[in-house]
């Protein structure tokens, strides 16, 4: 069985998500895909178009928030559903992301849940014995 790349944790009003990855890059990739999986069925997204963005942060936690902020804008603001992601990290404060997917098409895609924003509250990215773990609370 495929190992779980993320799990939900309880937050009274919103949605807490814990994400795992073998490396920092993989953690960031899994985080973007978790956002998509919580929003819609990823199997129905064809990776036909490409988007790229670069993002900066004050530190790794801030970079994680700013990165997820860009991912959310693509999904919610632009209606671009993401199927594949690659992340290149320059350091803890800078990364470049390449995302493949397609525009939201009513009839083909169904939005199950709207993740409205990413918050800084208790956000963390840390190294664990098994790899990397990220923790974030989304406004839903």
């Amino acid at each position: 069985m495929k190992e779980k790349t993320f799990r939900l944790f309880d937050h009274t009003a919103d949605l807490g998500v814990e994400i795992f990855g073998g490396s920092r890059e993989e953690l960031f990739v899994h985080a973007a895909l978790a956002v998509v999986e919580l929003t819609t069925d990823p199997e129905r997204i064809d990776p036909v178009l490409e988007r790229r963005f670069s993002v900066e942060g004050l530190d790794l936690n801030d970079l994680f928030v700013n990165y997820l902020r860009e991912v959310l804008y693509l999904v919610n603001g632009d209606g671009f559903l993401i199927r594949e992601v690659t992340v290149e990290m320059e350091d803890s404060c800078r990364l470049r992301a390449k995302l493949r997917g397609e525009p939201f098409t009513p009839g083909k895609h169904r939005i199950n849940k709207e993740i409205k924003a990413v918050t800084y509250h208790q956000v963390s990215v840390e190294k664990t014995a098994k790899g990397w773990k990220g923790r974030v609370i989304f406004d839903v």
Binding site: L58, N61, D62, V65, T119, Y120, H121, Q122, V123
Partner: peptide, 17 residues
């Protein structure tokens, strides 16, 4: 958050920026 240093005080949570 980007200019959080300008405040001159430490915040217990960045969401309070």
């Amino acid at each position: 958050v980007k200019h959080i240093g300008d405040l001159g005080v430490e915040l217990p949570d960045r969401q309070l920026a």
